[in-house]
């Protein structure tokens, strides 16, 4: 009798087990973050690590980003299904004819700033004139040069690849940085916060959202459900990451080690804590992952007026996420 109950129980549960996502054939997709493994992408790594992508029926391969992997090029070549890009990059590419679409706007605000040592005497934007200003050679170039142009700053522009050495070695007086990354690296190089003057772009009317999830328009048209699943799972991954920070730091560390990325726990904590601020839509009254039309219009107007684009892609053509 006891055996009979067990067998019946097994037969009842069997269809449920068979229907669980782990046993369904998972849809293989590839995903390229815009940079090397770091907490900036913690939500995606956690979605993979904690089986959240699998729960949504996805088998996601995360390719470590970096100089050798450009997201737009990889999307256009069909090498990846999804990628992370700054909103401004997405708009510029779309305006220049690339058929890419934004399917989820993860970061809701700007983290870019210019920074100067107080000892340099640079206190206001006017003090930038005649100085050497470091900007990234490839990243956010339009935002940084547009910022300087809009404020009529006449300075020597020094394009550099990455990091803080150009600033620390005195090759530039002012440099571009992200608050969640290079700024803290400066602090961990021995400069105290009260020795620096920060010029946050969001204080100058340029609070443009940053990281969003992109794919080719053709993929979205062919399989919109797949795109929605990827975004929903990624947002759930972020939710997990921000509520399990120690575990998240350990997981991302594993990916950093594989990609030989130098980092430490102090910086990882700073970056992960900063992500709360980047993702939360406080004051915007939107659900996570949404690109507000007003944010989109602010950015496209800036790019158009600064002559970085000659046409403004329509919001509805560019953004395919939830509203």
């Amino acid at each position: 009798m006891k055996n009979m109950v067990l067998i019946l129980g097994f037969l009842v549960l069997l269809p449920l087990v068979m229907a669980s996502p782990q046993n369904k054939e998972l849809k293989k997709v590839t995903f390229l973050p815009s940079w090397v493994p770091q907490q900036q992408f913690a939500g995606y790594y956690m979605a993979k690590e904690k089986g959240i992508y699998a729960k949504y029926g996805l088998d996601v391969t995360i390719i470590p980003g970096g100089y050798r992997h450009d997201v737009v090029t990889s999307l256009k070549k069909g090498e990846i299904d999804f990628g992370i890009m700054f909103l401004y990059t997405g708009v510029m590419e779309r305006a220049n004819g690339a058929k890419i679409v934004n399917i989820g706007q993860i970061f809701q605000r700007s983290s870019i700033m210019f920074i100067a040592k107080k000892s340099s005497g640079i206190k206001t934007l006017k003090d930038f004139n005649g100085k050497r200003i470091g900007i990234w050679r490839t990243i956010a170039k339009e935002l940084t040069t547009g910022f300087l142009k809009n404020h009529n700053i006449n300075a020597e522009i020094v394009p550099f690849d990455k990091g803080t050495n150009v600033f620390l070695n005195g090759a530039v007086d002012v440099t571009v940085m992200m608050n969640y990354n290079e700024y803290h690296r400066l602090i961990n190089s021995g400069i105290n916060p009260d020795e620096l003057n920060k010029f946050n772009f969001y204080d100058y009317g340029m609070n443009f959202p940053e990281d969003g999830i992109y794919c080719m328009e053709s993929l979205f048209k062919k399989d919109p459900a797949l795109c929605k699943k990827f975004v929903a799972a990624s947002i759930e991954g972020w939710s997990y990451a921000l509520t399990h920070k120690d575990e998240t730091i350990n997981v991302v560390d594993k990916y950093k080690e594989m990609a030989k990325v130098a980092d430490n726990r102090s910086h990882a904590k700073w970056m992960l804590n900063s992500m709360n601020d980047m993702i939360s839509s406080s004051g915007k009254n939107v659900t996570e992952g949404t690109l507000l039309e007003s944010d989109y219009n602010n950015l496209t107007n800036f790019l158009y007026e600064s002559k970085f684009i000659t046409n403004k892609p329509l919001y509805g053509d560019f953004y395919k996420g939830s509203r």
Partner: peptide, 15 residues
């Protein structure tokens, strides 16, 4: 390679 914008080239050149 864009070596002009790498630290090892850019910093000694600029300073």
């Amino acid at each position: 390679d864009h070596y002009f914008s790498k630290d090892w080239y850019l910093i000694p050149k600029t300073i």
